[in-house]
């Protein structure tokens, strides 16, 4: 157990708009290894939900199997959680979302859970544009089974076991862009300054939002020869832009230099202001995102930040033209056509 939190709550803890403290968003104590990147991500999720004043019980948190997928127990204790089976979080989340379109769905997965056993479901939940935040806690290895390479391990990178990975790595962000995901970002568990606003933007985005977070495995994959170690990521990380997420009610006070800033308005009126290092990068253009990812890959760098946003897409419910009221709240009267109609239907079978 990496940490034990005291039960005591200071009366002066800062509260959000709902009157909740950050503590109200916490979960059970983590049982992951001390220093695990995943715990930092859990903390960032807690911070993002706290800052956005999200009602904890209006969140459903789902996961697959693996170290990453244990984490939903460690945040948002007042939310319903579902630790499903290996690689099947996307389908279960799809069903849950179909039942109630009004909750915020946070799906947590790992690189094994997503890029290998769950690749099919990941691909299809993205192309259906399910309204959810899909977080990959990406450490390039299978932690729970003691450090085998995963499908996101870079070719040539070697874990503590010492044998370089011989296979090509899958870049989930690049795939997601190609699949038509409306929000794609990459974070690093060691950079909360960047990760918290990424998560906030992802939560505010309507539709499928992939947040791939490089999250070093301190036990099996944090050695000098690994490209998913804390040191390597810090040394090779470059961001598309620094950015601010301005929720709908907040007044914009900062002044941005013209030309280097791109603003994208989200569905609810929230605006993301990106302050870019490279002015040719266009966050709304799929080709631009893929090019930027490929350019950085060639240079041995890891591109982070918000990679792509497209707010014009319809989500699954829009596409299926489902009624406004959540399906799980429809009454029998609203669902059952009644015996008279049934007898009319049978006229077609005579």
């Amino acid at each position: 157990m990496s940490s034990r939190r005291p039960v005591f709550r200071h009366p002066d803890l800062p509260k959000n708009d709902l009157g909740y403290t950050r503590r109200d968003y916490e979960g059970a104590d983590s049982t992951l290894c001390a220093g695990c990147g995943h715990d930092s991500i859990s903390n960032s999720i807690i911070q993002a939900c706290f800052e956005l004043s999200i009602e904890p019980h209006r969140v459903a948190k789902l996961s697959g199997i693996g170290c990453s997928s244990k984490t939903p127990a460690y945040f948002l204790r007042r939310s319903h959680g579902f630790n499903t089976v290996h690689g099947r979080m996307p389908s279960i989340t799809t069903g849950a979302n179909m039942a109630n379109k009004e909750l915020l769905y946070i799906g947590v997965s790992g690189d094994g859970d997503t890029a290998s056993i769950g690749m099919g479901q990941f691909v299809h939940v993205a192309r259906r544009n399910l309204n959810m935040v899909y977080i990959v806690m990406n450490n390039g290895c299978y932690g729970l089974t003691k450090g085998q390479d995963s499908a996101t391990a870079d070719k040539g990178s070697s874990s503590r076991k010492g044998r370089p990975n011989a296979f090509e790595a899958i870049d989930l962000c690049e795939m997601a862009v190609q699949l038509g995901a409306g929000f794609v970002a990459r974070g690093f568990s060691g950079d909360k300054e960047q990760l918290v606003p990424i998560l906030k933007a992802a939560m505010l985005h309507k539709g499928f939002a992939l947040v791939d977070v490089i999250s070093p495995c301190v036990t099996f994959n944090n050695n000098q020869t690994s490209t998913k170690s804390y040191q390597w990521v810090r040394d090779h990380m470059e961001a598309t832009a620094t950015f601010d997420v301005i929720p709908v009610r907040q007044e914009i006070t900062a002044q941005y230099e013209k030309g280097a800033t791109q603003s994208v308005a989200l569905h609810d009126g929230t605006v993301i202001h990106l302050h870019k290092s490279d002015n040719s990068f266009d966050v709304t253009d799929r080709r631009s995102a893929v090019n930027a990812l490929e350019n950085h890959r060639e240079k041995g760098q890891i591109l982070t930040g918000i990679l792509h946003v497209n707010q014009t897409l319809e989500d699954t419910h829009d596409i299926l033209e489902t009624t406004d009221k959540p399906l799980n709240q429809l009454t029998q009267k609203e669902l059952c056509p009644g015996n008279q109609t049934l007898q009319q239907i049978f006229e077609n079978y005579r």
Binding site: R88, S91, T93, T94, G95, A96, N97, M98, A99, Q121
Partner: peptide, 9 residues
């Protein structure tokens, strides 16, 4: 999976 997720919800 979709059916189970919906039933759960």
């Amino acid at each position: 999976g979709i059916a189970i997720g919906a039933s759960w919800n």
